[in-house]
Amino acid sequence: MMSPTFPTQSGPLVLPGPAGDLEAAIDVPDADVAALPFVAVVCHPLPTEGGTMHNKVVTMVARTLRELGAATVRFNFRGTGASAGSYDNGIGETDDLTAVVEWVRRERPGHALWLAGFSFGAYVSLRAADALQPDVLISVAPPAGRWDFDSIVLPTCPWLVIQGEADEIVDPEAVYQWLEDRKAQAELVRMPDTGHFFHRKMIDLRGVVKHGVKAYLPQASG
């Protein structure tokens, strides 16, 4: 299929991916927010456990970044929702993310590219970061201990890691140990009394994201 142009209004979109069509949602800042020259691609949690681009953590992270002036791209990995293909243990999903980022960069040259991911989406965005070289990376509950994190090349860009201290899916200590063992240059925010899905902690998550990335916002163009 032909690649669509980057829309000027929020709405659904179908993007070409390596395994076929990728279902996506493009959102632009509200009219009362000054748009800044950056696009944030936000990756969803494990599809075999019900994760999609409509996950509440994913939509909250995307909404928060739009409040800061970003246009955001959420998309369903292969085999999820209306996206073609089938689940591929993070390998094909990394290719999906790469295709989406390449489209964003073609359509928005000169814009900064931010990557964010929740859980499995954090793993995929970390796998891709060395090749894609985002300007900022946000990892929410990265599932260290559940996936092969030892082979990940750590990002060199500003990197915010957010981890709930009461996470029942991802072992917080495994995340902290991985960051320490790798001497990761990440800003780690530990959220007390917070489970994996941030129930009753969404507003806190919003504040953590805003505070953690505000220093890296691009200057308004023009």
Rank of each mutant, 00 (worst) to 15 (best):
L154W: 12
V61E: 05
P37C: 01
L13W: 05
G121L: 05
T52G: 01
A34R: 13
D130P: 00
V61Q: 06
A166D: 14
I91D: 13
L15A: 08
V213K: 03
R108T: 08
A141G: 10
I26R: 00
A122S: 14
R146P: 00
G85I: 03
A31V: 13
G90L: 03
P12Y: 11
P18Y: 06
L205F: 05
G212N: 04
P142Q: 02
A24K: 03
I203W: 11
G121T: 06
P142I: 09
L15T: 11
I169A: 01
H111F: 15
T72Q: 00
P4S: 06
V209T: 05
A166Y: 06
A84I: 07
R63H: 14
F6W: 15
H111N: 13
R182N: 15
E102D: 15
D167C: 10
A24I: 10
V61M: 12
A112N: 00
A70C: 09
L126H: 12
G212V: 09
A31I: 12
A144V: 14
R182A: 15
G85M: 04
V136Y: 05
L115M: 04
V209L: 10
M2C: 00
A31C: 02
P192Y: 09
R146L: 15
R190W: 03
R66L: 04
V175M: 05
R190H: 01
V209S: 06
G121E: 03
E173I: 13
F75A: 00
R74N: 03
G212C: 08
L205C: 08
D193S: 09
A144D: 04
R105G: 01
A166C: 09
F120D: 08
A129T: 15
D193A: 13
P218W: 06
V153H: 10
D171C: 10
V42K: 08
P16T: 07
A62C: 02
V161W: 04
I162H: 10
F38L: 14
T72P: 01
P109A: 03
P109N: 00
T8Y: 09
H199K: 14
T8W: 09
L188P: 07
L126F: 14
P158F: 08
V28F: 11
G92S: 02
V101M: 05
L22E: 02
L217V: 10
Y123N: 13
L160M: 11
L36H: 08
G212T: 06
F75G: 00
H196K: 04
L126Y: 12
V161I: 12
F77T: 02
S151A: 15
V58T: 06
E168L: 12
L179A: 09
S3Y: 10
P45W: 07
V189F: 08
E67Q: 15
V153C: 06
S139F: 01
D95P: 01
D88I: 03
K56H: 15
R190C: 11
I91L: 14
A71L: 03
I138G: 02
V124W: 00
F198E: 06
L126C: 12
R78V: 04
V100Q: 01
R78H: 03
